[in-house]
């Protein structure tokens, strides 16, 4: 008990410190990501010149190329120069066409954010609703149906949902185009036609995970002794959920949503390829196929940064929603 009391004071006094610690943790993760991304692409025995020039290249050509690309400098210098560029929005030049990677990324990043944002805007409210309600009506037919459906959906790869959508709406029903022709969007109708399938597929992909985790978080709260106590005080169902359960469940739920956003990022990659959507993930997959390392590096960084921002934000919300006096 003494420990808890102390924890209470600590928490109230040190809320900024807690948040600071979380941001620091995010920063170290970011550093880890940056170093990993650089390291993985630089620990190769062979380097980019092999990929660019092929097996038959003369040693002179390789040396010249290495000099052009700066590969003859030390690893630390290269890391520093690369990092310096990254900090200034310069991700180097594509090995494929020699154009700046940043220029290729910028318009596609906009498209990807649009796709991911629209899908999240659909998926988050729907999954909160489904997750919370199925936790409330636990063990009913509704709950079991939601549970089996979402279990099925988390168990199939993302491309299955995308291709199924194409099969049903484009191949069988002919109501929607199979490819997302974003460039020719001029009206709301065209916008909906172009975006409906990618957004719906991506939302479905994200939803399943999110519903399951939200339900688990909410069910956990609902099994707490203070919920039973509230019932025994004669509190009605609406008040029970809104006043007693939600304030305690909000932290875990936000956390669950943030964690499921990783499936959104994974899903973006697959969905963009299925619909040949002109986003950054499609760019990255192409770059991986052609082993265009600077482009892959840049895309990976952008993705990881987005993911880190989202999870950090969620964690801060969780910290803020911690009840007073509960140990962090």
């Amino acid at each position: 008990m003494a420990k808890r009391k102390q924890g209470a004071g600590d928490l109230n006094r040190h809320l900024p410190a807690l948040i600071g610690r979380r941001i620091f943790a995010a920063a170290t993760s970011l550093a880890f990501v940056i170093v990993t991304v650089f390291a993985i692409t630089n620990i190769l025995p062979g380097d980019a010149t092999d990929a660019l020039l092929g097996q038959g290249a003369t040693p002179q050509a390789i040396a010249a190329m290495r000099h052009d690309l700066g590969l003859d400098r030390s690893v630390f210098l290269r890391f520093w120069l690369w990092l310096w560029g990254v900090l200034h929005g310069q991700f180097g030049y594509s090995l494929l066409n020699g154009l700046p990677v940043a220029d290729a990324i910028r318009p596609r990043l906009h498209n990807s954010l649009l796709l991911a944002g629209a899908s999240a805007a659909v998926a988050v409210p729907v999954s909160l609703f489904l997750g919370i309600t199925s936790a409330i009506w636990k063990d009913t037919l509704y709950d079991r149906a939601v549970s089996v459906l979402t279990l099925g959906m988390v168990s199939v790869p993302e491309f299955v949902i995308g291709t199924m959508a194409v099969y049903v709406f484009a191949v069988r029903l002919h109501v929607l185009p199979a490819l997302a022709d974003v460039a020719s969007v001029h009206s709301i109708g065209q916008f909906l036609r172009a975006f409906f399938m990618p957004v719906a597929s991506l939302a479905l992909v994200t939803l399943a995970q999110m519903v399951r985790m939200t339900r688990a978080a909410m069910a956990d709260t609902l099994s707490a002794p203070y919920i039973e106590m509230a019932l025994l005080k004669g509190v009605g169902p609406a008040r029970l959920i809104l006043v007693h359960a939600i304030p305690n469940a909000i932290g875990p739920i936000v956390n669950a949503v943030a964690l499921s956003l990783s499936s959104l990022l994974g899903g973006v990659v697959v969905i963009e390829v299925v619909f040949t959507y002109p986003g950054i993930a499609g760019l990255m997959v192409d770059a991986v196929s052609s082993r265009d390392v600077p482009t892959v590096q840049a895309c990976a960084l952008v993705f990881c940064l987005t993911y880190l921002l989202l999870t950090t934000f969620a964690d801060i919300v969780t910290i803020l929603s911690l009840p007073r006096g509960r140990k962090a």
Binding site: V37, I40, T41, G266, V269, R291, C304, Y307
Partner: peptide, 13 residues
């Protein structure tokens, strides 16, 4: 903190 599919893409590249 690196989504798994991205990590795979990075390594495979």
């Amino acid at each position: 903190s690196i989504p798994s599919l991205l990590f795979a893409l990075l390594v495979i590249a």
